[in-house]
Design a protein around this nucleic acid. Sequence first.
DNA 1: GGGATCGGACTCTCAAGACG
DNA 2: GTCTTGAGAGTCCGATCCCA
Length: 258
Amino acid sequence: MPTVDEKSPDGEDPLEPPSQDLSSLHPAALSGMQMHVYPFPNALLPSQQPLRAKRRQVKNACTHCQKACKKCDDARPCLRCVKYGISEECVDSQRKERKKGVKRGPYKKRDGKGSSVNRADTATTVSNTLTPGGPPVPGPYLPIGYHPGLYGQYPKSGDSPPSFNPPYFLAPPHIQPELPSPTDADGQTFSANGLYEQPPLLASMQYQTTYPISESDGVPSSPQYPVYAKAPSDVEQGETVDGADSREEEQEDASKVD
DNA sequence: GGGATCGGACTCTCAAGACG
DNA sequence: GTCTTGAGAGTCCGATCCCA
């Protein structure tokens, strides 16, 4: 009985192509879903064991989602609160301040030996998720749905103010239009290059985010940057949608060179 | 069928420690 | 000053139960 909010975009069915009518969704549904949309439908996926895409978390869940231990999103009201008709009660939960002065033991070094060398093992990227144990399959692995730079961090002090662009960008056009467009199990067509066609709505969709006002002091309770866009110049060539993943990949690559 | 609850796996973030 | 690492804090998956 999957519902819109319960259906994890990258947890339960990371390989499942979007099959629902996106035009009926709360904008947050679009921000919270398709974090990783892979260009292959299930039937055309390589027959490796399904590896889970890395789960993504919102920066701050609302109080209701937090209490229910359910998936929240960056928009306020969040999808779940909208669904339950408690939009006006959808406010960010308070986060504790991290403890300071915690003493730590000696560090393990990771250079080639030691326990932490396989830290990168936990990093799953879009490409290596598709090709476990094998060379990356060349292809259009840009996740459809977000600009590669959109999954940035919250701005830190000194960063330029956050900007936000419409989240969707188009997949490359069909390369081999003469090939018939197969359909997946849901009847959704996808192009010959393995990319789903973008619903026309998405191209013109405007994303709106409201900023919750703290009941206590009347100021935004926390920075709400649903998706933080890097400046185009900051987007590294070949950077994946997940900056952290790509960083870890780079680190891993660097260690291999060594 | 749908909502509530919750244990625990998983992820994110950042300060401490290491290093050049 | 920058990088690396550990661990605190938080999210949310998935199982289970309850109710209409």
